[in-house]
Design a protein around this nucleic acid. Structure first.
Length: 557
RNA sequence: GGCCCGUUGGUCAAGUGGUUAAGACACGGCCCUUUCACGGCUGUAACAGGAGUUCGACUCUCCUACGGGUCACCA
């Protein structure tokens, strides 16, 4: 019997239900009709129920590459491992990426898939993978392997004892030359089996490939017969990747550098299948400073590893994206400094500009970026964003915030819009505390008045100010002028320079008098401009608070 | 252990054989200032180690150390 005939029998034995050929799929999934240079990228997460920061990192690269080249960015769900799949996980993927403004042109959705290269969930593509696997068997490039877990374990131990490289290859590949008769017998006995790729490679050969981020990479050629179809007929990642990215016509594969070590499998399969290889971009991992050492961001240990963290804290999505851009493309920051107002998408992202080493996640930097982004927003925009955040993550505050939107907007507009805007907020969850004293429910009355002032003087300020000086018609300058008048009347220093030069000559200064008013009205020593606060609070509230503070002080001890 | 990737200040990083080795964040100081938040000026601080190649190495080569990844019918 010639080998071709044996292959044919083996293929029919393994895949009696497969009637299509690779050609049918080539026709089903046509080459994409895209302009020159357009990139087709994808994000291909596993539906495990949460999104890692690294997912966003990769997704951003994919999205930028595709969209700035006029290409296609699609979503493929890698659910080949049924054990790890979590219900509702696709929703999590969709909403997370949507929250960060990354939009797909094609792929899996909540409902029907979008696009003609689907289905976009790998488990639904079983027939395709099996068709390609059958073709490989036909060509003698794949074979069934009936080794059990124990067999493989034993193999591993033997290899360890002999100091051989681990893996299913060469003389270790027990079933590499299995006959159709043997396979038939095992199958009739109901033995489970996998399908292995018959690697044509030699260990001593070296292969080279140019990674767009890492540059030239040199590695030994693959010689192991890796599993391409698991016993349930579903492919392993390696096979699914090659088949899908070929038929979905992906031009650029962006993935973490953990794939570098299995990269030779993929290259070899593209080679053997006669398919054009995509370009690859292997990205370094984000690290976390842990004491004196660095390690991968960990879902378990690091809250910031999960994408939901940023949503909960209330980072504006563009802040996270811009932070990632500064890590990804070293020239981004420079560009941003020159073009502070420009749309992020005007920046030309280049894979070649990516760093090769893993970057330590720097939340301080993220915070700085976030703070600056928020500082450029109007009060109205801050209100809208805070409202959206609070609705989801702080319902109690949401009620206060939205009780009187105009009032809230006025508060959030303090010190905004000028050349040197206030930078009070890093995240939306900073807003509730900032605004707290504007609501009676959260106004605190501990009254940290200046300790250097006598109770009598403090009470005098609280009583005389509303009686003789407070006028809601005053502008900022007049308002402060009156505070100075009161200061002077009390014998306190009006001129701060004079006071600093000789503090002992005065009981206190205008700073103290201002502090009394501030503490009475806001309940704190630190707040935005007291004049602006009083204006927003309104006359009645201001008077009531001054009175309340005086009473509190008088009844104390 | 094998294979692979990496290593410039505390952090992110520019740099591609000749530089006073940028810039940003963080930190310190000064100034501004009625608090805070800003803003301005300014300071500390780096090429992992060794051997080569070269007139000259942060840049090229090799070795060592350290860090990371991977060696599954997980992705």
């Amino acid at each position: 019997m010639d080998t071709t005939h044996a292959n044919l029998r083996m293929a029919e034995l393994l895949f009696p239900h497969i009637t299509k050929t690779p050609k049918d799929y080539e026709a089903l999934y046509p080459q994409r009709d895209l302009p020159q240079g357009a990139m087709v990228t994808r994000i291909a997460p596993s539906p495990t129920g949460f999104m890692h920061f690294g997912n966003l990192y990769g997704a951003l690269i994919d999205e930028r590459l595709a969209h700035q080249s006029g290409g296609v960015f699609y979503l493929r769900i890698e659910n080949t491992d049924a054990k790890r799949e979590v219900e509702g996980a696709v929703d999590v993927i969709l909403t997370s990426l949507n929250a960060f403004g990354l939009n797909f042109d094609e792929g899996a959705t909540n409902g029907e898939d979008r696009g003609i290269y689907g289905p976009y969930r790998q488990r639904d593509r079983a027939e395709l993978y099996q068709t390609i696997a059958k073709d490989l068997v036909l060509r003698g490039l794949a074979y069934p392997c009936f080794c059990t877990e124990e067999d493989l374990q034993a193999l591993h131990e033997k290899q360890e004892a002999e100091g051989a490289n681990f893996g299913y290859y060469g003389k270790w590949a027990a079933h590499a030359n299995i006959t159709v008769e043997e396979a038939e017998k095992y199958i009739s006995e109901g033995k489970p089996y996998v399908v292995r790729f018959r690697s044509p490679g030699k260990e001593e050969n070296r292969i080279k490939y140019k990674d767009l981020a890492k540059g030239e990479i040199e590695m030994p050629e693959n010689c192991t017969d890796i599993v391409i179809l698991k016993s349930d007929g579903i492919p392993t990642y390696h096979f699914a990747h090659v088949v899908d990215d070929h038929f979905m016509r992906t031009t650029h594969v962006v993935r973490g550098e953990e794939w570098l070590s299995t990269f030779p499998y993929h290259l070899q399969m593209f080679e053997v299948l006669g398919w054009e290889k995509p370009a690859y971009i292997h990205t370094a991992h984000m690290l976390k400073q842990d004491g004196t050492s660095k390690r991968k961001l960990s879902e378990r240990k690091d809250p910031e590893a999960r994408l939901t963290y940023y949503l909960q804290e209330g980072y504006p999505a563009p802040a996270v994206i811009e932070y990632l851009m500064t890590v990804l493309n070293s020239n981004f920051e420079e560009w941003r400094n020159k073009n502070p107002e420009a749309d992020l998408n005007e920046f030309r992202f280049k894979a070649e500009k990516m760093g090769v080493a893993g970057a330590v996640f720097d939340i301080e930097k993220l915070n700085d970026i976030s703070k600056n982004i928020i500082s450029r927003m109007t009060g109205e925009e801050v209100y809208e964003a805070t409202e959206r955040w609070a609705k989801e993550y702080n319902p109690e505050f949401h009620r206060l915030l939205t009780r009187n939107p105009e009032y809230s907007k006025a508060i959030l507009s303090i010190g905004r819009g000028g050349k040197k805007p206030r930078k009070d907020f890093t995240v939306w969850s900073d807003v509730p505390h900032y605004m707290a004293f504007f609501f009676e429910e959260t106004f605190e009355t501990d009254y940290p008045f200046p300790e250097t002032m006598s109770k009598g003087d403090i009470v005098r300020v609280l009583k005389e100010y509303p009686e003789a000086y407070y006028d809601t018609d005053d502008d900022q300058q007049t308002w402060f002028g009156k505070v100075k008048e009161l200061t002077d009347a009390m014998g306190y220093a009006v001129d701060m320079k004079a006071y600093k030069a000789d503090p002992a000559a005065f009981p206190g200064s205008v700073a103290d008098i201002s502090a009394v008013l501030r503490v009475a009205v806001t309940g704190r020593t630190a707040s935005p401009d007291t004049y602006a606060v009083m204006n927003i609070l309104g006359k009645d509230t201001v008077l009531a608070r001054l009175k309340k503070a005086a009473e509190a002080l008088e009844t104390k001890d």
